[in-house]
C-alpha cells in the first residue's frame, strides 16, 4: 500500500540505514559516553566548540565519508541529486552551520540521540527544524524555485 501511495519511497532501505545510524549512536554512547551529533563533533574537530576529545570527534567525522564510500561501492552506486545551484548550496550551508551551533544540534544529535532519550529540548528542536524545513520547501516551491 505504501508503495502505491508513495512510489518513490524506499522504506526498507530507509529502515536498514536507520538501524545502522542507531548502531553508530549506540557505539558512541556506550563506547565513549558521548552523543553522536554530527554538527557538534564537526565543530569540535575544527576547534570551534568544546566537548568530546578532539581526536575522537575528528575520527568520527573522517569515518563518515569512509563508511559512505564503502556502502556506496557495495551497492554499486547510489542515487543522489543535489540542488542545481552552488549559490543555494552555499546559503543553505551557511544557515545550517550557524543554526546548528545556535540550536546545539542537528538531525543526528537532536533528531536521533535526543528524541530516543525523550529529551524535551531535542523534541522541541526536532519539531522546530522539521516545521521550518517544511515551510521553507513549500515557500521555495510557491516561488517556482523547486528542484
Amino acid at each position: 500500500m505504501l508503495s502505491e501511495l508513495f512510489p518513490h519511497a524506499q522504506p526498507l532501505h530507509g529502515f536498514i540505514g536507520g538501524i545502522l545510524i542507531g548502531l553508530a549512536g549506540a557505539v558512541m554512547l556506550l563506547g565513549a559516553g558521548r552523543i553522536a551529533g554530527v554538527s557538534g563533533l564537526a565543530a569540535r574537530t575544527l576547534g570551534l566548540a568544546s566537548g568530546a576529545p578532539r581526536m575522537l570527534a575528528a575520527l568520527f567525522i573522517v569515518g563518515l565519508p569512509i563508511g559512505a564510500l564503502i556502502m556506496t561501492t557495495a551497492l554499486g552506486g547510489i542515487e543522489s541529486r543535489f540542488p542545481p545551484s552552488y549559490a543555494v548550496l552555499a546559503v543553505a550551508g551557511l544557515i545550517t552551520g550557524f543554526g546548528t551551533r545556535l540550536g546545539s544540534g542537528c538531525t543526528s544529535g537532536h533528531g536521533v540521540c535526543g528524541l530516543s532519550r525523550l529529551s524535551p529540548r531535542s523534541i522541541v528542536a526536532t519539531g522546530s527544524f522539521i516545521a521550518s524545513g517544511m515551510v521553507t520547501v513549500a515557500l521555495v516551491n510557491a516561488l517556482g524555485g523547486g528542484w
Binding site: I16, G17, G18, I19, L20, I21, G22, L23, A24, G25, V27, M28, G31, A32, A36, V38, L59, F60, I61, V62, G63, L64, P65, I66, G67, A68, L69, I70, M71, S108
Partner: peptide, 9 residues
C-alpha cells in the same frame, strides 16, 4: 561510529 553512520546514510 562514524563509518557505521556513513554507511547507514
Amino acid at each position: 561510529s562514524g563509518m557505521l553512520f556513513g554507511a547507514g546514510l
